[in-house]
């Protein structure tokens, strides 16, 4: 089993319990689920929130998050840092982000290989970038700044994309590997994003995962996607987070876990959010795959000892 302790360098301020949910599955936290989760916190391994939803000064959102953080481990997922943009990072935003890390002591902190801001306009979407020496350098500078601000390594998530840039000179997997090597960050492998991009751009998802630096994964994301068509009538998958995880994504996930052992896995659901039992059962399905991997690792150890 690969060692993945490099992401667990939480600076504990003692405000919240120091959970370490090894090999657990989690779910996106939505405020409408607070009572259901509080009533059965053992039914989920951890919760993840979008950092920007908790960047207001105070009030109910912070009260809800503090209540959840008291009973469960928290993963903080940023969506607006614009790490893949050419413009310098927004210092004020970075300070707010670091403030949340300090305040809630998350066991994982992640952001995207994407951008969202140009010329002071915020587009509220995860936009793609070409993979060139120029963008590589810029992305690494931005990750250095984030890690300096939060005083710990972050995880960088592979994107789902709908277009390609003919000017790209790096394969995405090589680009990610090089970022890890230059910055010391970890990776968040979004398996649904791999499937979406592979379908949209006609490459093999299995081949992508074979090239992916699996030893640096600190978290996995699973989510549902929508299916549309491109200009030629070919399937164009949309990373919509509004439905259950698709079967081929589960299959890819099982392959990754079989190769890597258990890795904290999040089921994301951000639109048309169902009642808690539906979301919880998706996370439970991921947990079963993680548990199988744990028990097979345990039986291998036992064979090694007694065989």
């Amino acid at each position: 089993m690969m060692k993945r302790d490099f992401t667990r360098t939480t600076v504990s301020n003692g405000r919240f319990p120091a959970f370490d949910p090894v090999g657990r599955a989690g779910a996106s936290f939505k405020p409408q689920h607070i009572e259901a989760i509080a009533g059965q916190s053992a039914s989920i391994g951890f919760l993840e929130v979008h950092a920007e939803n908790y960047m207001g000064a105070g009030g109910a959102p912070h009260a809800a998050l503090a209540r959840m953080r008291d009973i469960l481990p928290l993963s903080l997922h940023g969506v607006c840092m614009s790490i893949g943009g050419l413009a310098p990072l927004d210092r004020e935003h970075l300070a707010r982000f670091a403030g949340l890390v300090e305040r809630y002591e998350p066991f994982l902190v992640s952001e995207h290989l994407a951008w969202s801001t140009h010329d002071d306009v915020f587009y509220n979407d995860l936009l793609p970038l070409p993979y060139t020496d120029v963008t590589l350098k810029r992305v690494c500078e931005h990750i250095d700044q984030v890690q300096e601000a939060i005083r710990r390594p972050m995880l960088l998530e592979n994107p789902s994309t709908y277009v390609i840039f003919p000017e790209s000179t790096w394969k995405e997997t090589d680009f990610l590997r090089e970022i890890v090597s230059r910055t010391g960050c970890g990776l968040l492998l979004d398996v649904n994003n791999v499937f979406v991009s592979a379908t949209n751009h006609g490459f093999s998802a299995t081949g992508y995962l074979a090239d992916f630096p699996l030893e640096h994964i600190g978290e996995i994301h699973l989510a549902g996607h929508d299916e549309q068509e491109d200009d030629e009538g070919a399937p164009l998958l949309i990373d919509s987070h509004d439905r259950p995880v698709a079967d081929p994504v589960w299959t890819l996930y099982e392959e990754v876990i079989a190769r890597c052992g258990p890795i904290n896995t999040l089921v994301e659901w951000d639109a048309d959010v169902p009642d808690w039992p539906v979301l919880q059962s998706e996370a439970a399905a991921a947990q079963r795959i993680l548990d199988r991997s744990l028990s097979s690792a345990a039986s291998e150890r036992s064979h090694a000892l007694h065989g």
Binding site: D125, P130, Y162, V163, I164, P166, Q228, D231, E232
Partner: peptide, 22 residues
């Protein structure tokens, strides 16, 4: 003009996904 589909395919609907998302 910097974006395309794979293998030189068109990217009108593809780019519109971003427009729609935003």
């Amino acid at each position: 003009s910097c974006v395309a589909g794979p293998g030189g395919k068109a990217a009108v609907k593809r780019f519109n996904v971003y427009r729609n998302n935003v």
